[in-house]
Amino acid sequence: NLFVALYDFVASGDNTLSITKGEKLRVLGYNHNGEWCEAQTKNGQGWVPSNYITPVN
């Protein structure tokens, strides 16, 4: 599942992941309501807002 970041997101805690607009990432899963997804980039792994990313076509 390859996705791309639509916006910059700055991590606010130990379990969140900073991403940069245009960065590619893999989604590993979603939380119970789908608002957050666990993602992996070359810089690490953590939670990002699911509305900040979109699938790569």
Results as ranks from 00 to 15, higher is better:
K42V: 11
W47S: 04
G44L: 02
K21A: 12
V4C: 05
T16R: 06
S50A: 13
W47C: 08
P55Q: 07
N51H: 09
V56Y: 13
S50H: 11
Q45S: 13
S18P: 10
E35G: 09
T41L: 03
A11R: 09
N43D: 13
A39T: 12
T54A: 10
A11H: 07
E38S: 10
L25D: 01
N15G: 14
R26I: 08
K24S: 10
N1T: 02
L6P: 00
A39G: 13
G13E: 12
S50F: 09
A39C: 03
T41S: 15
Y52W: 07
H32S: 11
G34Y: 07
I53V: 14
R26W: 10
N51Y: 06
Q40G: 06
S18H: 11
P55S: 07
K42G: 14
K24M: 13
N43E: 08
S18K: 05
Y7S: 14
A5V: 06
P55R: 11
L2W: 11
T16M: 02
Q45W: 04
G46C: 09
K21P: 01
S18F: 13
L6Q: 13
N43W: 08
G44W: 11
K21Q: 13
A5C: 12
E23C: 06
L2T: 10
N51C: 11
I53N: 02
S50Q: 15
V48C: 10
N31D: 14
L6W: 02
D14R: 14
V27K: 02
K24N: 01
L17E: 01
V48F: 04
L25W: 00
D14F: 05
N1K: 06
V10T: 11
V10W: 08
K24Y: 05
T20N: 10
F3Q: 09
G46E: 01
F3V: 07
N15I: 15
D14Q: 11
D14M: 07
V4Q: 09
K21L: 14
Q45H: 13
V48L: 12
N51D: 08
L28D: 07
E23A: 03
L17M: 14
F9R: 07
N57S: 12
I19F: 08
G29P: 01
V27T: 04
N15S: 12
N43R: 11
T16P: 07
T54I: 09
V4F: 05
V56I: 07
K24H: 07
H32V: 09
Y30I: 06
H32Q: 15
A5L: 00
Y52F: 14
T41K: 05
S50N: 14
L17P: 03
N1W: 02
V48Q: 02
L17G: 00
E23H: 02
A39L: 09
N51V: 06
G44I: 00
Y7G: 12
G22R: 03
W36P: 00
A11N: 07
G29N: 09
K21S: 05
S50C: 15
N31Y: 11
H32K: 15
R26T: 15
W36C: 03
W36A: 07
V56W: 06
N33K: 15
D8S: 09
K42T: 10
L28S: 09
E23T: 03
A11E: 08
Y30E: 15
V27P: 07
V48P: 00
N43F: 02
N51P: 10
G22V: 00
T16S: 03
Y52V: 12
